[in-house]
Amino acid sequence: MPANRVSISRRAAALGALALAGSLLTAAPAHAGGGNGTPSGAPTAAATPKNDGAKGICKRLPKTEARITKALERLNGDATVVGSVARLQQRAGEAKAAGHAEIETYLNNRLTARKALVTNLQARQADLKAVGTWCAAHGEGTGK
């Protein structure tokens, strides 16, 4: 008889789980719209940001400017500077002279990306000047 009791309790647990799952499935459509009476696509007050992060951006501005300036100095360096565009051009030229076509292709593709990075960083640097002006006008960020 003990085996029979285990079997009954297992059946009861299975039926309880099935009933719970059924009740959750029938309740799910009521909560699908957000549960607060607003359509599911409409933003709620809790979903909107409290600020745009201007204070943090202004606070980090000096460090961000320094990083971009340092990167541009490296990229615009001469052929002796590791990571510069000139050094990569020199390496691509040496690969071409040595007859390593695959290496030359690889280095030229990196060179294209690196030149694009210079353009991107210059645009960011210009944007940061405008941000710095805005931060100063609004008294945001101490840079510390």
Rank of each mutant, 00 (worst) to 15 (best):
M1W: 11
M1H: 13
P2G: 13
R5Y: 07
V6H: 10
S7Q: 15
S9K: 11
R10I: 08
R10V: 08
R11G: 15
R11M: 07
A12P: 00
A14R: 15
A14I: 02
L15Q: 15
G16T: 14
A19G: 12
L20F: 10
L20C: 09
A21H: 08
L24I: 06
L25K: 13
L25H: 13
A27R: 03
A27Y: 09
A32Y: 10
A32W: 14
G33H: 05
T38Y: 14
P39T: 12
S40L: 11
G41Q: 15
G41M: 11
P43Q: 01
A45T: 10
A47E: 13
T48P: 00
T48W: 04
P49M: 03
G53Q: 06
K55A: 15
C58N: 03
R60S: 12
R60Q: 09
L61G: 02
P62T: 00
P62E: 00
T64D: 05
T64P: 02
A66R: 00
I68T: 08
I68A: 02
T69I: 09
K70D: 08
L72F: 00
L72N: 04
E73Q: 11
E73D: 10
R74G: 01
R74K: 12
R74L: 05
N76K: 10
N76P: 00
G77K: 06
G77D: 06
D78K: 03
A79N: 04
V82S: 14
V85H: 04
A86I: 00
L88N: 05
Q89Y: 00
Q90E: 12
Q90T: 14
R91M: 14
G93W: 07
G93A: 06
G93I: 03
A95D: 04
K96P: 05
A97H: 03
A97T: 09
A101P: 08
A101H: 07
E102Y: 04
E102P: 02
E102L: 09
I103Y: 02
I103G: 02
I103V: 14
T105Y: 06
R110Y: 07
R110I: 02
T112E: 08
R114M: 15
R114C: 01
K115E: 09
A116S: 13
L117F: 07
V118D: 05
T119F: 07
L121A: 03
L121R: 07
Q122M: 08
Q122W: 03
R124K: 13
R124F: 13
Q125K: 14
D127G: 05
L128T: 03
K129T: 12
V131T: 10
V131I: 09
V131G: 02
G132C: 04
T133K: 11
C135A: 04
C135S: 07
A136L: 10
A137K: 10
H138D: 00
H138S: 05
K144E: 12
K144Q: 14
